[in-house]
């Protein structure tokens, strides 16, 4: 019962804050709404026995990524809503219509799939989502995740280098102007 109430509350927060994020023309407000969405999702992850992921969600997404967003907004001075949205352009109408069809399709697929509730009860989860399990999955030679893990570390390195290259001022540009 408690879990049900929690779900509905969290779901409501998620949806409302994401709608605020999309609807707001102020990027700072959008960013804060997104933080709220992510935090409520993190709580939801705990109820789904993904404690480690929940922690990472808070640290990486709600923390680092969103701070980065806010930082860029402040850096570029985009805080003020300087961009009036053009209401009801063809693009907007089509986008909402298509998205509606998309949603209906997805929901219908989910409903008709008609999966039974939790085939595996919490007792038999054997510590699903604990740090131990995550560590075992990532580094065990019997699991397929070791190589992707290493590849991801290289990806992150490349991303860091790319970000630095992009953010650096071009020497030719500064000299030319």
């Amino acid at each position: 019962m408690f879990a049900q109430i929690l779900f509905w509350v969290l779901a409501a927060i998620c949806i409302i804050s994401s709608l605020v994020m999309v609807g707001s023309s102020n990027p700072v407000r959008s960013a804060l709404a997104l933080v709220l969405t992510m935090l409520s999702l993190a709580v939801m992850y705990i109820t789904l026995s993904a404690q480690f992921i929940a922690a990472v969600q808070v640290v990486v997404y709600a923390g680092a990524v969103m701070v980065l967003f806010l930082f860029v907004i402040m850096l570029l001075n985009l805080g003020a809503p300087a961009l009036p949205e053009q209401p009801r352009s063809m693009q907007t109408v089509l986008a909402i219509a298509l998205a509606g069809v998309f949603l209906v399709g997805l929901v219908a697929a989910g409903v008709f799939q008609n999966l039974p509730a939790a085939p595996i009860s919490a007792k038999h989860l054997h510590g699903l989502g604990t740090v131990q399990q995550i560590g075992y999955s990532l580094y065990s030679p019997h699991q397929p995740w070791l190589f992707p893990f290493e590849a991801t570390s290289i990806l992150l390195l490349i991303a860091v280098v790319g970000a630095i290259v992009l953010a650096r001022k071009q020497p030719a540009e500064t000299e030319g102007s």
């Binding site: 779901a11 999309v22 789904l48 949603l103 997805l106 929901v107 989910g110 039974p116």
Partner: peptide, 21 residues
């Protein structure tokens, strides 16, 4: 645990909102 469909539908909703955005 709640039926998994609830989570899937919530996920679909959030995804669609993101796509529209």
């Amino acid at each position: 645990m709640l039926p998994v469909s609830y989570y899937l539908i919530l996920s679909a909703l959030l995804f669609t909102i993101g796509a529209v955005g």
